[in-house]
Amino acid sequence: MRIGQLSRSELAGRLARGGLSLATGPVTTRIRTSIPGVAAHLAALYADFPLGEADGIADFSCQLRPPRGVRRYYRPQVLFLADGRSVFKPLAYHQAGPMLEWGMNWCIASQLRDRLIFHAAALERGGRALLLAAPPGSGKSTLCAALACRGWRLLTDEAALVELGAGRVSVAGTARPVSLKNASIEAVQRLAPEAALSAPCRDTLKGTVAHMRPPPESVRRAQEPAAPAWLVFPRFVPGAPTRLTERSRPEAFMGLAANAFNYAALGRRAFHRTADLVERVACYDFRYSRLEEAVQVFDELATRREPSAVPGAGEPGYHGRPHGPGVDGAAAGGAGERAARHPVAPGR
C-alpha cells in the first residue's frame, strides 16, 4: 500500500496513533505526529512511497511535536525527536515539513553505521551511478533535481549509502524528495515546469525552502542500488561558463572522504571502501551557472562509453588490501570537518 492510497484523514490518523511506517528504499522510518503540516507534507511529496509493515521493524522512530511550555499558545514551534530525544533546536511551527526532512537526514547521517554514508547526491542512468559530492551551498541539490527531471533516476539528493560488506561497490539512496532553496526553486521550475514542488516554506534557517516530489519511477525502484561510474564535485559559480575538468584520483579520494558522514567512525573500513569506490569511477570537477547546459554535459557523459581509467579496476581490493596502511587516529583528523569527528569525542 502507498501513502497516496490513504485518505487525508486516514493519513493523519495513522500519524497521530504512531502507526505510520514510511519505507524509503533501504531505510524505514516510523513517524508520529499530530501536526497537520506533516500530514500535508507527506501527502504532497510522498504519495508514491510504500508503507512499511505496521508492526515491522523501523530503522528510526521519530516524533514531531510542539515543545511543552506556554510559548505554544502565542508562538508555536516544532521539535523533532529521534527515539524520544530532541535533536535540534525548535523551528517555527509552519516549518514542520522541512523539520521532518532535516530530521530524517540527521537520522541517516548519525545513526547508520553499517554502511558508509557520503554527503552526496546520487543518480542512475543505464545502470551506472553518478555521485555529486559537495558541501551545502554548492548547487548539488539543484543539479540533482534538474537531472531527475530529465531522465536520470534519483537515488538521493543528500546521503549516498555504500555497503561495506559486499564485494561489488554499489550506491543506494532513499529516493526522498529533493530539497531546493531560494533561487534554485525558480531555476528548477524554469527548467522543468512539470516538476511537482511543495509550497515554498519561507524564513527557515536556509531562507525559502521547497521540496521536489521524486519521479514515481525513482520511488518504485528505490530498493535498487547502482554501480558507481562517475564522481563529480559540482560548484555553482554565478556567471561562470560550464566546465567539466578531470580531477586526479588522490584528490577525488580526499574530496569524497571529506564529504563522508561516518568516515572517522568506521576507520579503516571507510578508507578501503572509499578507495574501492574512487578506483571504479571517472572523477571530475564541475563548475556551472546555467542549469540547461549542465544537464547537457551529463547527458553526454552518460552516452559516452567511459574507458576504464585504471587497469584492474573492477576487481575488489585492487588498491592492495590487506597490506595497505590502516587509518589510525591521527590520519582520521585529516579528513575534513564532517569526517573529522573523532571516535573519542563526547557523544550526545
Binding site: A58, D114, P343, V344
Partner: peptide
C-alpha cells in the same frame, strides 16, 4: 531480522573502531 542485524552490526563496527582509537590515544 535483517534490519535489526544491520543496526547491531553497525554498532559493532563503531565500537571496534572506537576501541582501536582509544588504544591508539
Amino acid at each position: 531480522p535483517e534490519p535489526a542485524a544491520r543496526h547491531l552490526w553497525g554498532g559493532y563496527l563503531a565500537a571496534e573502531r572506537n576501541a582501536e582509537a582509544v588504544r591508539w590515544e
